[in-house]
Design a protein around this nucleic acid. Structure first.
Lengths: 213, 213
DNA sequence: CGTTTATGGATACTGCTACTATCTATCACG
DNA sequence: CGTGATAGATAGTAGCAGTATCCATAAACG
């Protein structure tokens, strides 16, 4: 198919497709002549993947590029591909000169990892975010959430087990990487939406009738 | 305290504080003379809240403004304040002309809500995101995650119960609104980080040794 | 009491991201 | 053969989140 059809089916404007081609998010079509290329199902699929990551999961284009480079690599270990996905959805934060709250949070996180038996690299992108978030919650006098950290972690673990189980049902090793990455990134969007819906439902029941400010 | 000290303690540059003042994210200090104002603990706290939402939770400044306006309103029902928080973290998406996948996803979500007994407004911001995400997952041939939607929802419900329990331990109705909003927004960051850590740990165990790419 | 430094308020400018628009030289198609 | 689409290159745009500059004061210091 030509670019116009690709655009029509995917709903992505032609100039945007050209932009993705320029940025190497999308591999070039097969040139049939100096100014004619033909695109196929793989391009359509890739384009849909890009839009899902950008629109739904709010991943910046540069991050999508990293993720896709990982997916396209035949030699990169899956664990490293996952690392790219994680980095794509956890913005790099500059470390803020160890404060008191920061140190306390670091300790708590270390304890949590130990008690749960989670082993992660010390420069895992999410580690910093978790520490900063806990420190922020404490500084904002919202310790109550932090007190339940362990329950949260337990519930989260059940998520991840579900996910791993889901992924391992797909045995084709070609597909498993994309499955994991999409699951990681879009799964986050999915869970987040579910959480907000659950919250709205509970909030409606609890705080619309008794006018509790 | 003066602006320089506010800046020093919070780590936020003076020009940025001025920017937040301009945008009415931060209430003006008390003027002691035409060009001198003094700020207090409430300004510091508000500033920290802004930074947490902006830096940690990636909420756009305009969204933070909405959320804070809600928090500052003495008359707005809590449920509406929560609505503002939800809108702040779910970017408005333009609906993409009902497609086949979209319709199927809509049906599935309706069934989920019914089976879980969740009652939400039909224009809840998260509803659309959930539907779009499910549609995208199916279009990308990643149905496996969607198949576990109910398990996800169950686990998510346990989150929210934890949260509600945590919040209700704080009875001061003045504080409850901020608690809920901060819990909603930073809680998302917290859960997301935990999930990534759990995933990394599992991924390390599963896919670094057997080179399973 | 004069000089240096900081401040409030207003306006302008910047860097970054994610596109859009335009242009040119083909090329396909009726 | 003429109309319209296309690849590829270059330039321009809108929105966001700050930064920078300026001015007229006011505080702090010697």
């Amino acid at each position: 198919m030509r670019i116009a059809e690709l655009s029509r089916i995917s709903g992505v404007p032609v100039p945007t497709i050209k932009y993705y081609l320029r940025e190497n998010l999308l591999p070039p079509g097969e040139l049939t002549s100096p100014n004619q290329a033909s695109y196929d199902e793989t391009h359509l699929h890739r384009l849909r993947l890009i839009r899902a990551l950008v629109d739904l999961a709010q991943v910046p284009v540069a991050g999508v590029k990293d993720v896709l480079e990982g997916l396209d690599s035949p030699t990169m270990p899956l664990h490293d591909k996952i690392g790219r996905a994680h980095r794509a959805i956890t913005p790099q934060r500059q470390l803020p000169s160890t404060s008191e709250a920061h140190d306390a949070a670091t300790t708590q996180v270390q304890e949590l990892l130990a008690s749960r038996g989670w082993s992660v690299e010390r420069d895992a992108p999410a580690l910093n975010t978790l520490i900063e978030t806990i420190a922020a919650l404490r500084t904002l006098h919202q310790d109550h959430l932090v007190d339940f950290l362990d329950s949260y972690a337990a519930a989260v673990e059940s998520f991840t087990e579900i996910e791993v189980a889901a992924v391992t049902t797909r045995t084709s090793s070609d597909e498993i990487a994309e499955s994991v990455i999409v699951g990681t990134i879009l799964g986050e969007t999915l869970i987040s939406s579910l959480r907000l819906l659950a919250q709205e439902s509970i909030s409606a029941k609890r705080w619309t009738k008794p006018a509790g400010n």
